[in-house]
Amino acid sequence: MTASIRNAIRFYVEGFKSMTWGRTLWLIILIKLFVMFGILRVFFFQPTLKGSPEDKQLQVATELANP
């Protein structure tokens, strides 16, 4: 079991070490994820509905049911 885990870790470590063009791609992925979750999600995409499920339900019901 331990040997299998060690082999799996070595597989990934060697894989990452032997990357050439993949390094640039990983850099792009990391920057993209940082922009998405570290900036956009935090500063621009807060959920509009706030509070407990009951509060959210009330907010939506109020919007939908009040012509």
Binding site: G22, L25, W26, K32, T48
Partner: peptide, 29 residues
Amino acid sequence: FGINFAIGVATGLILEFQFGTNWSNYSWF
């Protein structure tokens, strides 16, 4: 394939951000 996968991966998650922020009535409904 790897290049395209790396650049495109997670771009769909932004749509899910929009559901919660821009389309909150829809998301709840």
